[in-house]
Amino acid sequence: MSVRPALAAYLDRIGLAAAPAPDAAGLLAVQAAHRQHIPFENIDVRLGAPIPTDPGAIADKLVGRRRGGFCFEHNRLLSDRLAAMGFANRLLLARVTFGDPPDLPPLTHCLLLVTLADGARMIADAGFGGTYCPPLPLVDGAEATSGDLARHRLRRIGAPGTLPGEWLLERLGPPETTDGRGRSHADWEQQYAFDLAEVAPADLMMGSHFASTHPSARHVNCHVASRVLPDGFVSLLDRQFTRYRAGQPMERRAVDDVDDYRDLLAREIGIDLPRDALARLPLWSAGT
């Protein structure tokens, strides 16, 4: 597929009639549309299916087959399509610190560093399934507020090459608009740390492989699917469904069975899969 049809298919998938200008407002529009239309999900991980790392295979899954994916899929697709729109960008790797892990985590998340035409640098991320953060200028203390009214802050915490990273993304907002790892309405919580080191394709493949196969990895130990709403967040975390919209009562309930799960997945998240595939998820194993 050539660049032009690929870009047209992507814009249709995320509900935009045309590519926006390659500026800060355009980046905000593309990332928000991406996350509101392409779900985050790890169903293939839990089914033991291979996770694509080739850009064409990722586009076929997320655009052609209208599936979702996790960060290495989402942000590879976002990077390629932003480049086609005129946004200079490259991928970075990050350590997820959301939920206060006990040890220094590995580099199992990716995000984008975008350089605008005026030279300004911003971070963008359509692949963090636990929350939603709008694009932020790469400036110490930069803040943005998402549609669920959560605040997000970027802080410079170290020199290049130091651990856990040079930059830290933080969040302050309702825990209900997270995938269950958010804990406080009142305190800034760490989301992930990163630096600006160049990333090779092999580094991305290694991060994706660890995140989808290692026994300690989150995606190997839970079932998650989520979608950003213009003013909130909807998620399926194992057998719990949550929907939150700013200014409205939160809805939370248990998922009854595989049929209920399939209905919620299709109606609320936007993923339509056969019942027999979903019935094979470890979610329905005894003791899960």
Rank of each mutant, 00 (worst) to 15 (best):
G26A: 08
K61Q: 06
P101S: 07
A94L: 00
A19V: 12
E176D: 15
L236C: 05
L169Y: 09
I58K: 00
G26W: 08
G158Q: 05
R267W: 06
G165W: 12
K61S: 08
A200E: 15
H37C: 10
L172E: 09
H185F: 14
P134S: 10
P230S: 08
L78R: 04
V199T: 11
R65A: 14
D125Y: 00
P52F: 05
V139E: 15
G165M: 14
L264C: 07
L168D: 08
A150F: 00
P249G: 08
N75S: 01
A200Y: 13
P230V: 06
G270E: 15
D23H: 06
V255Y: 07
A117D: 14
A159P: 00
R267H: 08
A202V: 02
S208I: 14
V114F: 09
P249E: 13
C71W: 06
P101F: 02
E176W: 05
I58N: 01
L28D: 10
E251D: 11
G119M: 04
A59K: 07
G207V: 13
A186Q: 03
P52C: 12
H152K: 05
R243T: 07
A225G: 06
L169Q: 02
G99V: 05
E198H: 13
D148Q: 00
S208K: 10
A88C: 04
V114M: 09
H223C: 15
F233M: 08
D54P: 07
L11W: 07
D148H: 12
F128L: 12
T178L: 02
A217K: 13
A254I: 06
F98L: 06
Y192M: 03
Q248R: 07
P106R: 05
A83N: 06
A29C: 06
R95K: 08
I271M: 14
L283G: 03
M85Q: 03
A94C: 04
L281M: 01
P105R: 03
P137S: 10
M85K: 01
A144E: 13
G161V: 01
A266Y: 00
A126I: 02
H185W: 15
R156T: 07
Q36P: 04
R218E: 12
L28F: 02
G130M: 11
